[in-house]
């Protein structure tokens, strides 16, 4: 949007506003009898996305529509990983769930880049891995061990995929992923 702040309905009386310098209460300039919360615009330095396909012009096709485009618009730099890089997206891929290349700074080919989360139209959430992640997150030592195995001892994406993505992952027979909304 490119504006410095936006008004938001509600929130008043909640603890969400406590200690938040980026949320203030102002009189409505058009109706001074009412006050509204205004929220400072977020301007992220970098936004990271994972999509289904990208082409050489940096156009990205996600398998699902979401708030990605608004986040890409707000961010100074946009980096995208995708399941597959192609020469040019098809008309249909450009028509829906689309992030135009003009908003994108760089694209990298990273099959299974969303794992252990899911990539709609490609593969579901890896529930088993997620359960392991959740269990390892219970204390700092266990989490350090998770990071050691999945990050520090898997220094490349290929090494990670080989070790942690189940064989044949994303091929038919797996349940579709639920997306949309939240």
């Amino acid at each position: 949007m490119g504006v410095p702040y936006v008004p938001v309905l509600g929130l008043l009386g909640s603890d969400l506003l406590k200690g938040r310098k980026d949320m203030q209460v102002l009189p409505d300039p058009f109706d001074p009898a009412h006050k509204t919360v205004v929220v400072k615009a977020l301007r992220p330095e970098v936004a990271l996305f994972h999509g289904l396909k990208a082409d050489r012009a940096g156009n990205v096709h996600f398998g699902y529509e979401s708030d990605n485009v608004i986040l890409a618009e707000a961010s100074r730099r946009v980096l995208v990983t995708v399941e597959e890089v192609v020469d040019a997206l098809s008309e249909e891929e450009r028509a829906r769930t689309f992030l135009p290349g003009i908003l994108v700074d760089a694209v990298a080919d990273a099959r299974f880049g969303a794992h252990p989360a899911g990539c709609p139209d490609a593969y579901p959430v890896d529930d088993e891995h997620m359960a392991w992640y959740a269990a390892q997150s219970l204390d700092d030592a266990a989490f350090a061990d998770y990071l050691r195995q999945t990050v520090f001892e898997a220094p490349t994406h290929d090494a990670y995929v080989q070790r942690f993505v189940p064989e044949g992952w994303g091929q038919s027979g797996q349940r579709p992923l639920q997306v949309a909304g939240s």
Partner: peptide, 16 residues
């Protein structure tokens, strides 16, 4: 312990 959403409304605030 933490008010995520408030039942009561401060004065002069629009609430639908």
């Amino acid at each position: 312990d933490f008010i995520s959403a408030a039942g009561q409304t401060p004065p002069d605030v629009l609430r639908r």
